[in-house]
Simulated scan of single mutants.
Amino acid sequence: MKWLQTVQQQFLQHKYAINAKQLGDNAELAWSNLGYWNDATSFYPEACRQLADQLAQAVHLTSKDRLLDLGCGQGASLVHWQQQYHVQNIEAVELQSSCVIQIQKLLPELPAIHQQSFLNLKQVQFQTGFDVVLCIDAAYHSNLNLFLDSAGSVLNSKGRLGFHYLMWSEKWLDLNSFQKKKYQWLLKAADVNLNHLMTELVLKQTLQSYEFAEIEIRDLSKGVLQGFANYFHTLQQLSPQTTDLDAFKIRMTAKLCRKLYAEGVVKYVQISAKK
């Protein structure tokens, strides 16, 4: 358990920042998610785009949609929506001030980017509601009820929501108290509250309680968790290991992803729904 305690102490201090260059993305507006990996995926930016595409396709994103990107990080997704989906009406929400400043500098044509938690969207004065709200690889750090209440408040009638979350598999019910405690530490190290996770049935019921319909939950565990862990293993073989805090965070993230996928108790899922 010593490595878990070390992760908890060091990882949480930098829970939102990621050094994309160490993962292979040197762009000024870089990606910052785990990526979706398949046998043909070789590069980190490619995997990140694929994870974004999975989500965009699930909500049927079109060029005519008014889009809100939650937790947009360093801004790569904003460029992706513009270039690949030709979406012009985009706003974004990001908590990290350094990312907001960089995006404002490099994407001056963006209608608006708001420095705010995506759990506090009711405090942002949006001019109108949104047709689509997307949150790539970030919502599982928060309470699902708070997230749905916030995101639902800015959606138009029949608006679509897409996000990633963590979910208990059936194996969770068979764990003893010690094993569940172990998962509490594992998830806490990654800034995930064990009490926020649900089974698939409860997850659907929670979405329905916020008046969401056409709910689709897709298991991406292999492509995301195993994929990122395998990619990091390849990186280690190709280049010398660094020992700074950024590298430590990436290494521990990969170790956690491998463990979660191997044990199969926690699933990484993509959720799409319509208001």
Rank of each mutant, 00 (worst) to 15 (best):
E200W: 00
Q226C: 10
F228N: 02
A189D: 11
K182N: 10
K222G: 03
L238G: 04
L173M: 03
Q237M: 00
L175C: 02
Y231Q: 03
E200G: 04
Q205Y: 01
Y183S: 09
L173F: 05
E216V: 12
F163E: 08
T234S: 14
L207V: 06
Q208P: 03
L220K: 03
K188L: 14
M198W: 02
L194E: 07
S221P: 02
L175D: 06
A190W: 08
Q236P: 00
K182W: 05
H233I: 07
T206C: 10
F163D: 12
H164M: 12
N230H: 06
L203G: 09
L201N: 07
A213L: 04
A190N: 15
L197F: 03
T199G: 12
L197V: 08
Y183G: 09
K182C: 09
M167E: 15
L225W: 04
K180L: 01
N176M: 02
S169V: 09
H196V: 00
D191H: 12
L197I: 03
Y183K: 09
Y165W: 15
Q226I: 09
K188E: 15
T243K: 03
F178V: 02
R218G: 01
L173I: 03
M198V: 05
T206K: 03
E211Q: 13
G162P: 10
Q179M: 05
E216A: 07
L225F: 13
L173R: 07
E170W: 06
D174C: 01
D191G: 05
T206H: 07
K188R: 14
S169L: 09
A229F: 05
T234H: 11
E211K: 12
E211W: 05
D244A: 00
L201K: 06
E170R: 11
Q236L: 04
E216G: 08
Q208I: 09
K171Q: 14
W185K: 12
D174R: 09
W168F: 15
Q184G: 13
Q179P: 04
H196N: 10
A213M: 09
L225M: 10
Q236V: 01
F212T: 12
L220Q: 07
N195M: 03
K181G: 11
H164N: 15
L194V: 12
K188V: 08
H233V: 09
D244T: 01
L166Y: 13
A213S: 13
K222I: 00
A247N: 06
